[in-house]
């Protein structure tokens, strides 16, 4: 038993080598392939303004997906995000009717998102209810309130300044949404990968009991994650409402599925415990490029949803099939 044997190195493999073998690297290749295929299939694709337009396909969903990624890594889920967007948008619409200005509208949108997130978080962490059922319930409740308020009507008439969030550009072809997406990607990346909070999220997702026994305030972390998811849904509601310029109760219907798919496609385990923000960012681009490419080829939107549904199952099934084959 020599001394050399006793010494434990910090790392076995340099970080770079490990990075190359990751899911994210594979996904990046897929993104590049789709990009190339699109460029070949349509002459309109390689145009700065077209590409800029394409980003609107995913920026709003991705903002929610960042928070959802943290929530899923921590072993919970929020299926009410699209309904929160609807409720926040409805609240902003009602406020706009009442003559509230742009800053007030943004504040209302974010506040409604936060309140909805807090409601989900309290039900899950205080009453100990399974988040999947709770958020199926609040999904009906939040959107139901929008229907009660709006019925078959719609809100419009947002102030002119409000259009900036969904339609404005900060620099050349860089839209406000794209810029916000980048800032949020960075912020969530740092939060998950470089802070003690992010470390706690991973610990809880891998083993919530173990994390509790290690002195982590599990309920508090989960509550904050629900708050964040609500807040990001509020942010998405501001952008989407601003972009559309109107609010119907069916706004963003079905987005929860696309957001969950984006997160899972990004390499986040649906069972919790693993995943990265860069993965979700790349997955957002992949989904945006596919949607945009199919759009250029005149493929209708509902076919997109088949592709998304199949992607969702395939990205989980394929690694498992591969593992089974290797074992056999």
């Amino acid at each position: 038993m020599s001394l050399a044997e006793r010494h434990i190195p910090d790392r076995l493999h340099p970080p770079l080598r490990r990075a190359l073998l990751r899911w994210e690297s594979l996904l990046l290749l897929v993104a590049a392939a789709i990009f190339a295929a699109n460029a070949m299939a349509s002459p309109y694709f390689l145009n700065a303004w077209n590409l800029s337009d394409a980003t609107f396909n995913f920026t709003e969903k991705a903002m929610v997906a960042f928070a959802m990624a943290l929530l899923i890594i921590a072993g919970e889920i929020d299926l009410s995000v699209a309904a929160i967007i609807a409720l926040a948008s409805t609240a902003m619409g009602a406020a706009a009717q009442a003559g509230v200005g742009t800053p007030g509208l943004v504040a209302i949108g974010l506040a409604v998102g936060l309140a909805c997130g807090a409601f989900n978080g309290l039900l899950v962490t205080r009453l100990g209810l399974p988040s999947i059922v709770v958020t199926i319930g609040t999904m009906s409740l939040f959107r139901g309130i929008s229907y009660i308020v709006l019925g078959d009507q719609a809100y419009g008439g947002y102030p002119a300044g409000f259009a900036f969030f969904g339609q404005g550009y900060v620099f050349w072809v860089i839209s406000f949404e794209l810029a916000l997406f980048a800032v949020l990607a960075l912020a969530f990346g740092v939060l998950l990968h470089a802070t003690t909070f992010g470390r706690a999220v991973y610990a809880i997702g891998n083993n919530a009991t173990g994390a509790l026994f290690a002195g982590i305030r599990v309920a508090r972390v989960k509550f904050v994650l629900f708050l964040l998811t609500g807040l990001m849904s509020g942010v998405a509601a501001v952008c989407l409402t601003s972009r559309l310029g109107s609010t119907r109760p069916s706004i963003a219907v079905g987005w929860e599925l696309e957001i969950v798919t984006m997160v899972v496609l990004g390499g986040v385990s649906i069972l919790g415990g693993s995943g990265t923000i860069p993965g979700v960012v790349i997955a957002a681009f992949v989904m945006g490029l596919v949607t945009f490419g199919l759009g250029l080829l005149n493929v209708p939107g509902i076919v997109m949803s088949i592709v998304i549904g199949a992607l969702l199952i395939a990205v989980i099934a394929l690694p498992r099939l591969w593992a089974m084959r290797r074992r056999a």
Binding site: L271, I302, I306, G309
Partner: peptide, 25 residues
Amino acid sequence: LVWKLDIPPIVVTLGTMTIYRGTIF
């Protein structure tokens, strides 16, 4: 999918939900 691949039922049926619905179109 749930039995042989051990995929969480919520994921499986969220996926097939959109696939079945899209197929109608």
